[in-house]
Write a protein that binds this DNA or RNA. Structure first.
Length: 558
DNA sequence: TTAGGGTTAG
């Protein structure tokens, strides 16, 4: 039965137009709207601005898809002389569903046809610029608000404050904000968002404190602002003071505790959280994954299912990461088949496939990982990195290198992460020449600045292959102080190749950097022991005891 | 005539 029949509304051309707005307001799906559209055409109402405005607005509230974009444009294009309402409805549609290009071309078309933009035109246009961080275009539009006399409007002002703040132009945001004739909670909140965005948490708090009226939005932005800059104490204080906390407020705080590694507090707050949604479950689960508690992440997933919360792709990616950490092939198989049963999810999403590839590779099912990777209709940088990483941990260095070049040939530009993966693979497989060439191309061809991790990879690569002096020179040529990882890699190499003198020097630098890390002392004592320097062994061991350093007992999974 | 606006989170 169609919507028309269900509503028991006549569809004859003589019936009043009022029935169509009523029908449009009842539409929940694209299919419903298509039925109404048929009615509009049948009644010859395609030129009625009122109806078309309502129709495009209804399309705007549907979930985004390529079908709705072409549909909205097609409906609009049939109107011979659209008025400002129709234009504004289409602009709003584009600001939410499609690219800045669409919005701008609609705007240009309307001004060319002498349709004068009004105070409703600019907020949506500014929002489109904001989404793309199109600063110069936004500035131009700001100028046009003045030209068309809309700059004193509350909504235009608020959208500009938001726009400048999000683009990092905080001075411009403040200027617009200070010049506003009238402000409401949204204008104030946008100002707070701007300061949080540029990292000026002090000024953000000042504006927040000055706000005449705070909303749940403004409280939540301030809490997540403190969380973002690691000030958990202030965030928690605000959460306690907040009158009507919602799930977002709690989730921001849970996120903060999880990032700080305080999973006990995160869990505690999660228990107190009202109306927990999939985002709050996800925040806690990600915390468990990132803090090396994969078993708790899996347990939480099972708990979530008993609460009948539908997992989304973030939850499943977390579940797969947890599974990768556990490394159980049995669990991986179950999770793999579970994920594949989730028909509501887009399994072609690159990051979902990347997680599946990663999980299978880390749990020892390289066959399945390869199949998933090769079956992808389109491979992106992330999926390539997952596959290369998988091959790398299985020691297939040569395959990683050829995959890396295949990735480039497919038109992807390697980033810092991709180079970390490839350099690690070269190091593991002893591919010294390839590694050096790649490190060189990273700097000279791709203009990337190597991070301390990249240097650590190279030091490891050179060190393992016995080129200790080269590794040492590279270490000293680093523009920033090498971190413990790079020094530690060289110390290992010294042990491997029995270089006592270099080992001594590197160890002393490491002792300064991490005086309480027992493994550095043990490594140095091993280096001495290998060359029968037992007195030195004694001195180092003694130092461990004197400094009260706790040795972590060795353990094995085997 | 009727119609339309801006701010939060993995």
């Amino acid at each position: 039965m169609t919507l028309i029949n269900r509503c028991n509304l006549k569809s004859s051309p003589s019936s009043s137009n009022l029935s169509i707005p009523r029908l449009i307001s009842l539409c929940k799906t694209l299919r419903n709207l298509e039925q109404i559209h048929t009615q509009i055409i049948r009644r010859g109402s395609e030129q009625e601005h009122y109806l078309i405005t309502l129709f495009i607005s209804a399309l705007t509230s549907l979930p985004p898809s390529t079908t709705t974009i072409s549909y909205a444009s097609a409906v609009f294009d049939r109107v011979s002389r659209p008025n400002i309402y129709v234009y504004n409805a289409l602009l709003k549609f584009h600001s939410q569903h499609s690219s800045l290009y669409h919005s701008v071309s609609v705007f240009l078309r309307m001004t060319r046809l002498n349709v004068v933009p009004d105070k409703y035109t600019f907020p949506v246009l500014v929002k489109s610029c904001c989404k793309s961080l199109a600063l110069n275009l936004g500035r131009g539009i700001h100028g046009l608000t003045v030209k068309y006399g809309c700059d004193n409007d509350l909504y235009v002002g608020s959208s500009l404050v938001d726009f400048y703040g999000k683009c990092g132009e905080i001075k411009c945001a403040r200027e617009v904000f200070d010049g506003m004739h009238e402000r409401n909670e949204v204008s104030w909140t946008s100002m707070v968002v701007g300061y949080v965005n540029v990292g000026d948490i002090v000024e953000a708090k000042k504006v927040f404190d000055e706000m005449p009226k705070r909303t749940v939005f403004s409280w939540n932005i301030m809490i997540s602002g403190f969380v973002r800059f690691g000030d958990l104490k202030s965030a928690r204080k605000l959460l306690e003071e907040m009158p009507d906390k919602n799930v977002v407020s709690f989730t921001a705080m849970i996120d903060g505790y999880a990032k700080a590694g305080d999973m006990a507090s995160a869990r505690d707050l999660f228990e107190q959280c009202p109306d927990r949604d999939v985002v709050s479950w996800s925040a806690l689960m990600l915390g468990y994954v990132q803090n090396g508690q994969p078993a708790n992440a899996v347990k939480l997933f099972l708990e979530m299912q008993s609460w009948n919360v539908k997992p989304d792709e973030f939850i499943l990616v977390n579940l797969m990461s947890a599974c990768s950490q556990i490394g159980s092939l049995e669990l991986a198989k179950r999770v793999d088949s579970y994920v594949n049963q989730q028909s509501s999810l887009n399994l072609q999403e690159p990051h979902v496939v990347a997680a599946l590839v990663d999980m299978n590779a880390k749990c020892g099912n390289m066959g399945r990982a390869t199949m998933l990777f090769e079956d992808m209709p389109k491979r992106d940088l992330i999926s390539y990195c997952s596959m290369m990483q998988g091959l790398s941990i299985h020691g297939c260095g040569a395959q990683v290198v050829s995959l890396f070049y295949r990735m480039i040939n497919e038109g992807h530009t390697p980033d810092g992460v991709a180079f970390t993966v490839i350099l690690t693979a070269c190091s593991r497989a002893g591919l010294v020449e390839e590694g050096c060439q790649l490190f060189d191309s990273m700097i000279n061809e791709y203009s990337l600045v190597p991070s301390t991790d990249h240097y650590a990879c190279m030091v490891d690569l050179l060190g393992r292959s016995g080129k200790l002096r080269l590794a040492y020179e590279l270490l000293n040529s680093m523009p920033v102080e090498p971190h413990a990882g790079a020094l530690g890699a060289l110390l290992w190499a010294c042990k491997l190749h029995g270089d006592v003198e270099l080992g001594k020097e590197i160890a002393s630098r490491l002792f300064e950097l991490e005086p309480q890390n027992a493994s550095n002392y043990v490594l140095l004592s091993d280096i001495y022991a290998a060359t029968d320097r037992w007195l030195d062994v004694f001195v180092v061991r003694n130092e461990i005891n004197e400094r009260g350093i706790q040795k972590i007992p060795g353990c094995s999974w085997i």
